[in-house]
Amino acid sequence: MTLEPRRTWKERARQLKLELFALLLAYKDQRVPWYARLFIICLLGYAFSPIDLIPDFIPVLGYLDDLILLPLGIVLAIKLIPPVVLQESRVQAQEIINQGKPRSWGGALAIVLIWFLCAGVVALLFVRWWW
């Protein structure tokens, strides 16, 4: 038994991280169309959000969104971005990752605030429905 399959999975995970970071950099580029930017920001919000469409504790289906929906979303986002911008973003992402792990506290705070806002709206609707 070899460790080759494990290595390919790790490599795929690294590639997925690189692609997500490249999409973040491409999102900031003015040459990307508005509809692609909207799709990218929704995809990145979903990818980095702690809340999944299908919770991970549900057997088999829990990881289905992570294994199928996220890669499909990345493929679609890549097709929406001009090739020149995507290539520049990939090179820039690789350089930043090689320097150390990138952190975005502002991005993390924005995602947390969005989820709190959504939870507040749901709670408000529930209270209105209950009374």
Score class of each variant (00 low, 15 high):
Leu125Val: 10
Gly100Leu: 02
Pro82Gln: 05
Gly106Val: 04
Asn98His: 04
Asn98Arg: 11
Ala119Lys: 02
Val84Cys: 03
Met1Tyr: 10
Ala22Arg: 07
Leu70Thr: 09
Val121Arg: 01
Val60Tyr: 08
Ala93Trp: 00
Glu95Ile: 01
Ala22Glu: 12
Thr8Tyr: 13
Trp105Ala: 06
Ile68Cys: 02
Cys118Arg: 02
Trp131Gly: 12
Arg103Lys: 07
Arg6Leu: 06
Val32Leu: 11
Ile51Trp: 06
Trp9Ile: 13
Gly73Tyr: 02
Ala26Gln: 13
Tyr46Gly: 07
Asp66Asn: 11
Phe48Ile: 03
Gln15Ser: 14
Ala119Val: 05
Phe48His: 11
Ala26Gly: 12
Arg6Pro: 02
Arg6Phe: 09
Ala26Leu: 08
Arg12Thr: 09
Pro55Leu: 08
Gly106Asn: 06
Arg37Met: 09
Phe57Val: 14
Leu18Ile: 10
Ala26Lys: 08
Ile97Tyr: 05
Tyr27Thr: 09
Ile114Gly: 08
Pro82Asp: 10
Ala123Gly: 04
Arg103Tyr: 06
Pro83Thr: 02
Arg128Met: 12
Pro5Ile: 00
Ile78Asp: 10
Ala93Gln: 04
Lys10Gln: 14
Gly62Met: 07
Lys17Ile: 10
Leu61Val: 13
Tyr35Val: 10
Trp129Cys: 04
Ile41Pro: 09
Asp29Pro: 12
Lys17Ser: 13
Leu124Arg: 01
Val121Phe: 04
Phe39Leu: 14
Ala77Asn: 07
Val75Tyr: 09
Ile58Ala: 09
Leu24Phe: 13
Leu117Glu: 03
Phe39Trp: 13
Ile41Leu: 11
Ile74Pro: 08
Arg12Phe: 06
Phe21His: 15
Leu53Gln: 08
Asp56Arg: 15
Leu76Ala: 15
Val85Ile: 11
Asp56Glu: 15
Gln87Thr: 10
Leu117Val: 05
Val32Met: 11
Glu11Met: 04
Arg12Pro: 00
Leu125Arg: 02
Leu61Tyr: 10
Trp129Ile: 07
Leu125Trp: 08
Glu88Asp: 15
Cys118Val: 15
Ala13Pro: 00
Ile114Glu: 05
Leu3Tyr: 13
Ser89Met: 02
Arg14Lys: 10
Ala119Asp: 04
Phe39His: 14
Gln87Arg: 04
Phe126Ser: 07
Asp65Gly: 02
Ala77His: 06
Ile68Ser: 03
Ile54Cys: 05
Lys101His: 00
Arg31Lys: 14
Ala13Met: 08
Ala77Leu: 00
Trp115Asn: 06
Leu16Glu: 14
Leu53Tyr: 12
Phe39Gly: 07
Trp115Cys: 00
Gly45Asn: 11
Leu109Cys: 03
Lys10Arg: 12
Ala13Ile: 10
Thr2Tyr: 06
Pro82Tyr: 02
Ala26Thr: 11
Tyr35Trp: 14
Asp66Phe: 05
Ala93Thr: 06
